[in-house]
Simulated scan of single mutants.
Amino acid sequence: MDFKLELIAVPVSDVDRAKAFYVQVGFNADHDHVVSDEIRFVQLTPPGSACSIAIGKGVSDAAPGSVKGLQVVVTDIEAAHKELTARGIEVSEIQDMPWGSFVFFSDPDGNGWAVQQIVPRNA
């Protein structure tokens, strides 16, 4: 049986600001539904990903900015760094480690992201 991770809740303080940020990063805005006065569900997906994030009102009881270690994988870290910078996203310099190359950024609430180019397994 497959167990596919498809959705991760990311707590934010301002849904519209967070949605605009993730769209600026390049995520696709898949859904934005107001279910009730207490619930607004926004789903965003990084391009090429099978897993999405959910932000909104009533989506998570975690503190805004408390999620760290979210990670997306790319095939070209230099191109990813250039694209994110061109989109106006504040990212770290490229950091090379034995297990891959990374750039890091945070959303407006401080939820932390890593962008990784994985070292090929045969390297």
Rank of each mutant, 00 (worst) to 15 (best):
W99N: 14
D76N: 11
D2L: 14
V12R: 06
P98C: 15
E83P: 09
F104L: 13
S49T: 05
A123F: 10
V35W: 09
Q117M: 06
M97H: 11
V115P: 14
V103R: 13
E93F: 09
D16T: 09
A80M: 08
P98V: 02
T75P: 04
A123L: 09
P46E: 09
D2Y: 15
D32A: 01
V73N: 10
S13Y: 07
I39P: 09
A80T: 05
V34P: 06
S101G: 15
G88L: 12
G69S: 01
A50I: 07
A63Y: 13
N111T: 00
P64L: 07
H33D: 08
T85H: 08
E90M: 12
R121I: 13
Q95L: 15
T45S: 12
I89T: 07
E90S: 12
S13A: 04
A62N: 11
F41M: 02
F105L: 09
V103A: 12
A29E: 13
M1P: 15
I55F: 03
V119Q: 11
A29T: 00
V59I: 11
A80K: 06
V72Q: 11
V12A: 03
L84P: 00
F104P: 04
D109G: 06
K19N: 02
P11A: 10
D109T: 04
A20M: 01
A18C: 03
Q43C: 08
P120W: 06
I53K: 00
E6P: 13
G58T: 05
V42M: 05
Q95T: 14
Q43T: 09
T85Y: 02
V59L: 12
L5K: 11
R17T: 02
E78V: 11
L70F: 08
V10A: 00
S36N: 09
G88Y: 05
E90W: 04
E93H: 15
V72P: 01
G112I: 08
E93C: 08
D32G: 02
L84N: 14
A9W: 00
D37F: 01
Q117G: 11
V42Y: 00
A50T: 07
G110V: 01
E93N: 11
A54F: 07
V42W: 01
T45P: 14
I94A: 15
W99P: 02
Q43I: 01
K4F: 15
N111G: 00
G65M: 10
A80P: 08
D14K: 05
Q116N: 11
D2C: 02
I39W: 12
S52T: 00
D109V: 03
A18G: 04
V67T: 09
A20W: 05
V25W: 07
S106N: 04
P64K: 07
A86Y: 04
I77L: 04
C51F: 14
I89P: 00
I55R: 01
P98S: 15
K4R: 14
S106L: 06
G56Y: 01
L5Y: 12
V72T: 04
H33T: 02
V119E: 13
A86P: 09
K4Y: 13
A114H: 10
K4N: 10
P64V: 00
I8V: 08
I53G: 04
W99C: 06
E93L: 03
P64D: 03
